[in-house]
Design a protein around this nucleic acid. Structure first.
Lengths: 223, 223
DNA sequence: TAATCGGGGGTACTGAGTGCCACACCGAGG
DNA sequence: CCTCGGTGTGGCACTCAGTACCCCCGATTA
């Protein structure tokens, strides 16, 4: 019945648009009563994101079961990959929803609230892990935001392309940027390549801003 | 007239709550017609964030006038400080709004959309600056998200405290975390303290993940 | 067969948001 | 003095999302 409503809604939304479709249109096409729509979805927007409640529950369970000794950043990235799997599981649906969401402000806002719940879940996990640090809560919020941004960047590129190419690899590459900068705190060294016969020596004055150091090391390691 | 509507709305919202207040209540208290409310605010939620449209325009103008040779991350941080100034300018109003927003889901969602517009503005500026890099757009999105997260972290702490203490310093400290990790690309060295008579030597194997290098240098510089 | 209970349908209502029109004000020009 | 166009405002009527309430029907149990 949920599925029937979702299907009917998407058929009408993609045909005549979101605002031009009323709840009555949806329920009459689905052959159910108007009251039943609101039994399954709290709002007209929610029918566009029917799978996110379950995915958020999965993410919460995943993080609750995560190894307390593992790298928290990696775990949070894996949690984000759970969301990706959901999108990649139904490419046609995801792309259709993306096109719809892109041009309906109400849906964009609703999507923001969905993403926000994911981000707060990730941040909550990081906060418990970084509880010992003095700036733990700040780091947790920043890293969660960065993970979500990287994830969404790759996901949106894929959606914009119509579902072509390997999303998994794209997200891995995007998240790598975050892990490289923020990872660690644990000892799990999922390090880069090899060539461990060479060393890089970075010399800096005390008080040198961190980004200059990073810049120098980056240039040396990759140059 | 805008001000009269905002004042009336806040008086009623804080008195009997957001959902319990109708537009009719607001306009009758303000002594204006119902139709005029929607001339000034597109929705009931928008009256809670009356100053953000102007602030977003200020931010856009600020970034458009920014020095193309300067550090883009610093500029984006300064742009975020524009928002902070707006909050700090009316502590009582800001704290009242915070308390209201915290417990009204509709307002939380609306705030998300407001923050989202700021974030997209920052990301747009960074994207033009990082256009040369292959991963420019990704970096731009991630850094913008990090800046917004850090800014909001400090701002929310201040709001939660009821407006006590120095927000500016708190935000500076939070943004410092972002600048240290992501800054550079420009040459503007608004460096840290001094003690430039000492040097730190960081030795790492080629292929060492960046976060380990950062961790080591961080420990050496601050330890 | 009667009683109970839960999922779904139907009806009427509130309230946000919009379109349309009338009115008041105001400076310019006859 | 009257008229005209533009602008800001109030009022009215309407659509539609969302909710409260009640009814119906089928299944289970005594």
């Amino acid at each position: 019945m949920r599925d029937a409503l979702v299907e009917a809604a998407f058929e009408l939304f993609s045909e005549r648009g979101f605002e031009q479709t009323t709840i009555d249109d949806i329920v009459s096409l689905a052959g159910v009563g108007r009251r039943s729509f609101f039994r399954y979805f709290p709002s007209k927007e929610a029918v566009v994101f029917p799978d996110h409640d379950g995915c958020l529950a999965d993410m919460t369970a995943f993080l609750a079961a995560a190894d307390p000794a593992g790298d928290a950043v990696e775990q949070v990235c894996d949690a984000a990959r759970l969301v990706l799997r959901m999108y990649a599981g139904n490419p046609a649906f995801s792309v259709g929803r993306y096109r719809l969401t892109k041009q309906v402000p109400t849906l964009r806002v609703h999507e923001l609230s969905v993403v926000w719940r994911y981000e707060r879940t990730l941040a909550g996990h990081l906060r418990t892990r970084y509880a010992a640090r003095s700036d733990g809560a700040l780091r947790a919020d920043v890293i969660a935001a960065a993970v979500v941004a990287a994830h969404n960047y790759a996901l949106r590129s894929w959606l914009r392309s119509g579902g072509e190419g390997d999303v998994g690899a794209a997200v891995d590459e995007a998240l790598q940027l975050v892990v490289e900068t923020w990872g660690g705190g644990g000892e799990g060294g999922t390090g880069a390549p090899s060539r461990d016969d060479e060393v890089v020596v970075m010399v800096a004055r005390r008080g040198t801003p961190m980004w200059r150091v990073v810049q120098g090391v980056e240039a040396a390691l990759e140059g």
